[in-house]
Amino acid sequence: MPADARDAVTLAVAGREHRDWESYSIDSDLFTPADAWQVSLGIPAGEVPASLHPWAEVELRLGTDTVLTGRIDVLRRRIARGAHSLTLHGRDRAAVLLDCSAPVLARRELSLAEVCATWLRPLGIDRMDIQGGDTSKKVTVEPGMSAWEVLERAAEASGLWPWFAPDGVLHVAAPDYGRATDAELILRDNGQDGGQDGGRDGGSAKNNILDLSYEDDIRRRWSEVTVLGQGTGDETDGARPHIKAVARDQAAAFHRPLIRDAAYLESDGQAQARANKLLADSIFESVLTTARVRGHRTAGGAVWEPGMRVRLVVPPLGLDVDTLLARRTLACDRRNGTTTTLYLRPWGLWLPDTAPRARKKHRKKGGDCCDCDLCAG
Rank of each mutant, 00 (worst) to 15 (best):
G307E: 09
Q272G: 11
D126W: 00
A102M: 06
A45Q: 13
D7K: 05
T338H: 07
L344D: 01
V225M: 00
N207P: 02
L342R: 07
A36Y: 06
A252S: 15
W161Y: 06
D4Q: 08
R19L: 12
L212D: 05
P33N: 09
G366A: 06
M145R: 03
Q196A: 14
W222F: 15
R153H: 04
L123C: 11
I79S: 14
N276V: 04
Q272H: 11
H255D: 13
G199I: 02
V141T: 06
V287H: 11
P315S: 08
P352Y: 04
E149F: 01
D129A: 05
E47W: 15
I72G: 06
L312I: 11
A154M: 03
G70M: 06
D129M: 05
R240E: 07
A147G: 00
T64A: 15
R274P: 02
Y264F: 13
R309K: 15
V227K: 01
P175H: 05
A183F: 01
A173C: 09
G124Q: 09
V293M: 04
C369Y: 05
T10W: 15
H18A: 08
D201H: 06
D217C: 01
A80H: 07
D193P: 05
A376V: 02
G168C: 05
V150D: 00
C375R: 03
D65A: 14
W304S: 03
W55M: 12
S146H: 01
A252V: 07
W21Q: 05
R127L: 09
D99G: 04
A263Y: 01
N336K: 01
G63H: 12
A183H: 04
D189Q: 10
S23C: 12
V96Y: 08
L68R: 12
G233T: 08
P241K: 12
G301N: 14
Y264H: 15
A3G: 15
V74L: 10
R107M: 14
G199V: 10
H296V: 13
